[in-house]
Design a protein around this nucleic acid. Sequence first.
DNA 1: CTCAAAATGAGTTGCGCACCTCAAAACGCC
DNA 2: GGCGTTTTGAGGTGCGCAACTCATTTTGAG
Lengths: 348, 348
Amino acid sequence: MVEETASAALTLKDIAREAGVSLATVDRVLHNRPGVRPDTVRRVQETIARNAFQPHVAAAELARGRARRFAFVMPTGANPFMLQIQAYLGEMSAWLSARRLAVEMVITDVFDPSVLAASLEELAGSEYDGVAVVALDHPSVRAAINDIVDRGIKVVTLVSDVPSSRRHHYVGIDNIAAGRTAGALVGRLVGQRSGKIAIIAGSQGLRDHAERIFGFNQVMASEFSHLDILPLLEGRDEDDRSQQLISRLLGKHPDIIGLYNVGAGTQGVATALTEAGRDKQIVFIAHDLTAMTRRLLLQGTLDVAISQNPGHEARAAVRVLLSLARNEPILSEQEKIRIDILMRDNLP
Amino acid sequence: MVEETASAALTLKDIAREAGVSLATVDRVLHNRPGVRPDTVRRVQETIARNAFQPHVAAAELARGRARRFAFVMPTGANPFMLQIQAYLGEMSAWLSARRLAVEMVITDVFDPSVLAASLEELAGSEYDGVAVVALDHPSVRAAINDIVDRGIKVVTLVSDVPSSRRHHYVGIDNIAAGRTAGALVGRLVGQRSGKIAIIAGSQGLRDHAERIFGFNQVMASEFSHLDILPLLEGRDEDDRSQQLISRLLGKHPDIIGLYNVGAGTQGVATALTEAGRDKQIVFIAHDLTAMTRRLLLQGTLDVAISQNPGHEARAAVRVLLSLARNEPILSEQEKIRIDILMRDNLP
DNA sequence: CTCAAAATGAGTTGCGCACCTCAAAACGCC
DNA sequence: GGCGTTTTGAGGTGCGCAACTCATTTTGAG
């Protein structure tokens, strides 16, 4: 029992013949070039639709000649998650060059709106076909993104979104949902016990951290109101500072049963927990899968790591930019980034 | 600060010149065609490697002429998970036809080794470039797969593997790890409580079910030995039968605190739980994300759904077959199927 | 050295499309 | 009806490679 799923192999010539026009006109319609009567445009488009015609991507790509260039605007510094994204882009290099795609890194201080905006404005005047940017949500950044879009360059925001801009796509997770997931897990894993829940973030000023905290508190308030949430600590994503803050907190509150680390500095938090000898009694949830969090999961110090797959984000950003540049539909289901719940037994 | 990641745009002609041979010889080397001295082969390959040369896939695809044909051997019946995979393949139809790829469904009884083997043998003599098969692990199936491979057709096993065959790739999850994940979650979510844990499967004869049960028991024995595991029930993946079995079990054991459904029939199990009024007290874990399990998660009847992403499996199978057919390297990190832990707050 | 077999060079064709030019036809306006 | 403008047709070129043919050179065995 065999079923057909794919169709014939029409070419532009067939479409031209069937629509009663020349190849040149079909080409004009296909690329929105001027000089075609609206009536004729419609006739050609109908013929294309009627036959479910798809231009042969390989032929189109070959005929284009020049390679496509994409820029990835990434933060300076040693943020492991960002470095992982860059590493996965590196792993794609054979894949990219076989398709004559060039991906270039633009490293800049994405946390300073004016610096980021300036970097983006520079790209607006360049020869890039697409830009992926880890964007801070700020009016001047938004304006810079819109400028790039107006130049006909495709833009996707990566990891961190600027929803008010006219960017074509966002590749990343819903951080409110991530925070809610953390809250639900803490609440469920502490079980019947009652006690206090600690929460530490890098800074409330970071949009993704703020969103996670919001989601976390939402769930705690609505579903686990019997638990006592301690005031938020800010560890600035640094191991040392996080360790000190948590050590002091553990000393002050012997009845902490759950701990959520919103940002980085997980190693510091874990050290504080083990030094206090309370890593097994306290439910500890953090973000991102690194060599370090993997180790902590296997040891049992960390109970759950909530993560977004950096490899998936890197590849999705490239694919989305490519599809946009080709005016191809995007497989949205494929490009959606999931909130991964990682425990010891489902580590990839 | 800009860093280059991709390289030049050499062509075969450049390679030929640099290696001091003709285009024809490079072509022979590239496609393992006979008639080239080993010494020359080496020289050409070294030139290719030295320049990190990648043939332009678009040009290669275009020059090939004929389209590639892939067959998907899928089970008969209304298994929702399998239907989802087929649905996602359908969603790819525009993507496929733009690449002149034809994907055809071969629906057969994959649970009968002789029927499946016969279907596969038929494919061995056909014009397919690749075959994806939901394979039962049985000697005659293994032999059939090896036959197909010997014909030069690429084979990937889908969802269910035949590790002893010479299939080129497996697209699916590690079911032992999935079972262990279920065990860890049941154990963690019941918390301090003590009581009995129920487990129901379709049949122990199904390899994936058996593996999940194995993993589940492994974790329960080593980490949650204080919990009492009830004997396995077999619901044949049917809602009615599962409901009856669970209803009876709930009547007999008032102290059940956890329940793991290994296979299908989740609706039946859920009905039994709610009718007994114990859906909130019992930790309930099942597999796969469907409209039904999504509803149960939102209601709170189901606590966790463990799933493998059917869309990802469909696309990965196609991509892997395509890469194999093109003799391209596979992005293994991309094609790996993860064990997803889905709760109410991280539903996609 | 001779001869057949193996290895190689040189060349052609065509895949389907993008992108271009130039001439011809159709059109709208006065 | 004449005019300029818009629309269309016809055609060409080349992208990089696969796949082929056929002539020529090199090689090794006897």
